[in-house]
Design a binder for these strands. Structure first.
Lengths: 190, 190
DNA sequence: TCATTAATTGAACACTGGTCAATTAAATAA
DNA sequence: TTATTTAATTGACCAGTGTTCAATTAATGA
């Protein structure tokens, strides 16, 4: 009945992203749908497709922010004062787990999802994210580490996050376990 | 036009499971649908619901077989002659990875899927499977291990399988990497 | 004022899992 | 053998999904 809204209430990419983000973070990826998002935005579902090619592109743009956040987490740890490099290395792994478990829906899309369309968009992002991680780890280790060692460290914490994402456990609930898991992994490079 | 087929071509639970299994193992969980399965079986999709309450129950019955297989893998390793317990422990972790990556669609449903309905059916199975694993590991370790240590070992290999499931990498392609990852994890309990 | 452009709508398409009344073959009882 | 009951199957139907697109209309520029 009324195609095209008045100028003030026109959709913008960022408005869509913000509401989508809110919806997806609070109720998870599986329950998210373009129609629910449209309802939340007060527009028709078709309108969203004027601003985003498809669902995958929308999620790519949402999650791009989270890759930046993850980089910041890493950078922040590198910037903090610690008693030793060993402690800093510990913190990197620990804070990675914290990030994963306090941002479970995002972590899922960033590193877990099998959806081919979404993986198509996320080609470099997870890789770049890993490279940052690997560089940080390499720079802090007491002994020189092989690339395989660093990869094993990553896979080790990735496994932790993955498992507790699946069971939707909060970070607080496994904080102590995370601590000992990180300590476990670090024993391997002692 | 012809409800109820002649006796010879009546559906059976096992026939459905077998075809479903084939379909799901070859083309993966996301592409699986009850309607495609019905087409493959040469029946209507409604008929399947006479034999299984829903999709989750069907998958539960499929994957129950795989939990048995995984138990067998473990039992087989425990039964083989090795030079040392250390080698046997190595084999347990390595063969777990092999199982996961040569049965990726199944591993996904067994340990990765977030679908609440499926998780409802798989309450004890993954847990029991882990207990077997944990007992085996505990019995083989040189030093006594804490439950946390065993859990970290599991989470460590789980992370490996998870990652290469997502990228749909074959076991053969990461066999060497799996070897070094297991060696890495075992260093932590040396 | 009027043509052009940009943004929105909602019907439509091809899917999904799931339900259920109607139908009919097979099994059982008379 | 015939009638009746039971078991298995069908396919229309429901509510939902992502996606497309002709039609519509507000805003913009000439």
């Amino acid at each position: 009945m009324s195609p095209r809204k008045s100028a003030q209430e026109e959709l913008t990419k960022t408005a869509i992203i913000n509401v989508a983000r809110e919806l997806f973070v609070t109720s998870g990826y599986p329950s998210f749908s373009m129609r629910k998002l449209a309802k939340e935005l007060g527009c028709s579902h078709g309108a969203i497709y004027y601003h985003f090619k498809n669902k995958a592109e929308l999620f790519y743009e949402i999650v791009t922010q989270d890759f930046l956040t993850l980089d910041c987490v890493l950078e922040e740890v590198l910037g903090t004062q610690t008693n030793s490099n060993e402690e800093k290395l510990y913190l990197i792994l620990f804070e990675y787990i914290r990030f994963g478990l306090t941002n479970q829906p995002q972590y899922e899309v960033m590193f877990l999802i099998k959806d081919e369309e979404i993986k198509g968009y996320l080609l470099e992002a997870p890789n770049n994210s890993y490279l940052h991680f690997a560089n940080a780890v390499a720079s802090l280790a007491a002994k020189p580490l092989t690339p395989k060692d660093i990869w094993s460290l990553f896979i080790g914490i990735h496994g932790f996050v993955t498992h507790y994402c699946r069971t939707e456990t909060s970070f607080e609930d496994v904080k102590q376990l995370a601590k000992s898991h990180v300590e476990f992994l670090l024993k391997a490079i002692k």
